[in-house]
């Protein structure tokens, strides 16, 4: 079973040289720490930076330089700042090639819910609806089950949706799962996790191929 850094390590393998990538808040942010040296990737944060670097050294943080999670960051050589309309032109116009974001629920038809629990948590969708509606390649990073131990991979989402039929791949603490033809397809399992474990933690229809390789981390 993977921890959050393990999930980020596996998702980093989805990133290709030359891509512009938007990383959401939480586990997705960790993906940046696992990109191999020498690979040319630029991280976009929707509040208005392309070429986002690591956190600043202690003492050199700048209140005017943050990411979409409101964390202080740095800008790498070649970075650029822009306004929010330009930022979402990059996203909506499909200039950002890969989006990694978290989710509360994902359905076997690729729907995603991650912005609201009616009557309980109302934080808002931020940029998530724009991101999932337009990105060609969306990878969801999440735990396979919620705190109550219930599956987050469902036949259909019970929470208000963020987007419909948009998620193609999910990486969890247990598995890599693709979504196509209205079903979850098991692609890889996490180290030490059995197909049976994944099956019992997946509420939606799960297609299991004859051989399911372990992740190569």
């Amino acid at each position: 079973m993977l921890d959050k850094n393990g999930i980020a390590t596996r998702i980093a393998q989805e990133v290709q040289d030359g891509q512009y990538v938007n990383l959401g808040i939480g586990i997705p942010t960790l993906v940046a720490n696992h990109i191999p040296n020498g690979m040319n990737v630029e991280f976009q944060s929707e509040n208005g930076i392309l070429g986002m670097g690591p956190f600043p050294f202690e003492g050199s943080e700048d209140a005017d330089l943050i990411n979409a999670g409101k964390q202080t960051i740095t800008a790498l050589p070649g970075a650029v700042y822009f306004d929010s309309a330009t930022s979402f032109a990059m996203i909506r116009g499909r200039h950002v090639q890969l989006t990694v974001l978290g989710a509360m629920e994902v359905s076997s038809t690729g729907d995603i819910a991650n912005w609201k629990i009616p009557g309980k948590m109302v934080k808002g969708m931020g940029g998530a609806m724009d991101l999932v509606a337009s990105a060609d390649n969306i990878v969801v990073a999440m735990m396979h089950t919620n705190r109550a131990g219930e599956s987050k991979l469902l036949p259909q989402c019970s929470l208000p949706l963020t987007g419909v039929a948009c998620v193609k791949r999910v990486v969890t603490n247990l598995a890599v799962i693709d979504i196509k033809d209205g079903a979850f397809h098991l692609v890889e399992r996490a180290p030490g996790v059995s197909v049976e474990d994944i099956k019992s933690a997946t509420a939606g229809k799960l297609i299991i191929p004859d051989s399911v390789p372990e992740m190569n981390l």
Binding site: E46, D83, S84, A85, S87, F88, I91, R92, D111, M125, G126, G127, A128, M129, D130, A133, S134, P160, L161, T162, G163, V164, A165
Partner: peptide, 28 residues
Amino acid sequence: PQGSLAERCRAGGAGIPAFYTPAGFGTE
């Protein structure tokens, strides 16, 4: 949605009364 918020403000300032976007389709 954040991108729709940004574009709705931009449109308001640019004399464009409305626009179509994929963001939010199929949601509340």
